[in-house]
Design a protein around this nucleic acid. Structure first.
Lengths: 143, 143
DNA sequence: ATTCATGCAAATACTTTGCATCAGC
DNA sequence: GCTGATGCAAAGTATTTGCATGAAT
């Protein structure tokens, strides 16, 4: 929270209760939340807070580098704190199962892209989509 | 085209001119096209073809395994022939530059996910987003 | 007091759906 | 002729924007 206050002021933005509440909602979620979810959480206590304020604040917090977002296969942006340990998700397109995996799995690729293309990839920006072991087995059996 | 006819019939679907034209438009595009683009191409010659038919056909062709789609950072689905050589895209979030890269870059990750998690990832389903070398340099210089 | 932030409502963009008509088989 | 496919219009979902009011500085 202290970091947000500092960032806002330094960049000439104002500290409003809405902004605090929205950031707190993301913090409390401890994971990936959509704008809709953030709004629902905030509106539970302050119903007059509008979802467009949530969108505008999320964009601001992103620009300040305080939050980031990831896209799962539904295309909806899911937000999380930038300070969170980076992690990657595997999503099964058949059963929808979602599994969090260690980012270290992506380190070699990350290094490769940097060395070969000077490209700084944000590999956690998209989830990994595919078919999980169980569904692959079912499919092979004729599911 | 012959393959489509076969697939359609085998699965009890009908061969309509719309379906042929839509598949041909994707073939001719030789790359990644949005539903909108497909519709524009087809409608250039047959204006009465509706975009909802394009969406329905794209879904059908996907189910038949004839086409696939990829998401770039704008979230819009871009379609391509399933028979195309798999490839991956790197997109710079600053300048928008789009670069096609060899899938072999992803092979180690693919193998790792299979071996460790039995997960069959569709790594080309999402483009890789990040910052390209040039933009990273500009940013470092104070851009 | 100034100016940015908010709430509201409307617009936007992409995609999906209901339904009557039409066409492939 | 039967049934699935299409065109059209409308709805849906996620997000953005214009504008007047209100609040932070």
């Amino acid at each position: 929270m202290g970091q947000m206050v500092q960032e806002l002021k330094e960049r000439g933005h104002r500290l409003t209760p809405q902004r605090q509440m929205i950031l707190e909602a993301i913090e409390a979620a401890q994971g990936h939340v959509s704008a809709e979810t953030v709004h629902t959480k905030v509106a539970a206590q302050f119903p007059q807070v509008n979802i467009s304020t949530v969108y505008r604040t999320l964009e601001l917090l992103q620009n300040l580098g305080l939050v980031r977002h990831t896209h799962f296969d539904d295309g909806i942006a899911k937000y999380h704190l930038a300070s969170e340990t980076p992690h990657q998700h595997m999503v099964c397109r058949r059963c929808g199962d979602e599994r969090e995996i260690d980012v270290s799995v992506l380190d070699p690729l990350d290094r490769h892209l940097r060395e070969r293309y000077s490209f700084e990839a944000d590999l956690a920006h998209f989830a990994l989509i595919g078919v999980c072991g169980r569904c692959a087995a079912e499919r092979a059996a004729g599911g």
